[in-house]
């Protein structure tokens, strides 16, 4: 009896559709989120993540509808992130059918938001998403905002420790150095975060080859998340799970 390592596809959504592009540029329509969610569910996704990258409030309103339709048809956990600013936003998403929500910039701007969400809904709903890169800070890693373009001035390990203390139940660690490079996850950073994190850690950013995922798990990740390699059909979730199993990790077949 071993807790299975999770493989999580991430869908960027805007205006009710899945969009894909490189570094949020040249976005193309990639279909209906519910249909893709179903497809990933059948391929063995252990959870689904929707990242709302809507640019306007009108577009954002459609996300609740997507969450509703997905929760009605796909019976695996669903995490929704992007644009969450208050505990009330969280309530709406949970009532619509989300199981977890992720916050990033809003928590940096106002760390009390972490406490407010966790106190009301429990820490199991709250994923703290951290966009980190190598820098000259205490741990050697800093937290960025605006998709990695700006420094927040926070040290990554110190921020994660604070986030957990305030009530984050899981850490989504996005390597901004590795993101989009397809050269593998930032193993050194993962190891550093695993060492100080008392909650599960999801590795994100840099997946390019099937073998990258096992390396992230070996470095201590409890779950691995990827977007483009799954969307563009480089390989499937099943392929990744097969490789993890071959490397001796427990998976859900």
């Amino acid at each position: 009896m071993t807790l299975a390592k999770r493989v999580i596809p991430c869908l960027d959504v805007a205006g009710g559709r899945v969009v894909k592009g490189v570094n949020f540029k040249d976005l193309v329509d990639a279909g209906d989120p519910v249909e893709l969610a179903k497809k990933y569910g059948l391929e063995g996704a252990d959870e689904l993540t929707f990242l709302d990258i809507s640019a306007s409030i009108e577009e954002r309103a459609t996300t609740l509808e997507i969450v509703r339709r997905t929760a009605e048809q796909v019976f695996i956990p669903l995490t929704v992130g992007g644009g969450i600013r208050s505990a009330e936003n969280v309530n709406e998403l949970l009532r619509a059918g989300a199981d977890k929500i992720s916050i990033n910039t809003a928590a940096i701007a106002r760390p009390d938001l972490i406490n407010e969400i966790s106190d009301r809904f429990g820490n199991q709903v709250l994923v703290l998403s951290v966009d980190a890169r190598r820098a000259d800070t205490k741990s050697g890693f800093e937290v960025t905002t605006h998709g990695g373009r700006q420094s927040s001035g926070l040290d990554t390990l110190a921020w994660i420790e604070e986030g957990i203390r305030r009530g984050a139940g899981e850490i989504l660690l996005n390597s901004m150095d590795a993101d989009g490079t397809k050269s593998g996850f930032d193993i050194e950073m993962l190891k550093a975060v695993r060492e100080i994190s008392s909650v599960p850690v999801i590795a994100s950013g840099g997946a390019g080859k099937i073998s990258d995922f096992a390396l992230a798990i070996e470095a201590g990740a409890d779950a691995v998340l990827a977007a483009s390699v799954f969307h563009f059909g480089n390989f499937t979730i099943k392929d990744v799970k097969k490789d993890l199993e071959k490397c001796g990790f427990s998976i859900r077949a």
Binding site: M1, T2, L3, A4, K5, R6, D46, N123, Q124, G169, E170, S197, S198, V199, P200, D222, A223, R252
Partner: peptide, 13 residues
């Protein structure tokens, strides 16, 4: 357990 919550898929005895 060192890492909580117990989050994910597990088997049952």
């Amino acid at each position: 357990a060192p890492i909580l919550p117990h989050m994910g898929w597990n088997t049952i005895n």
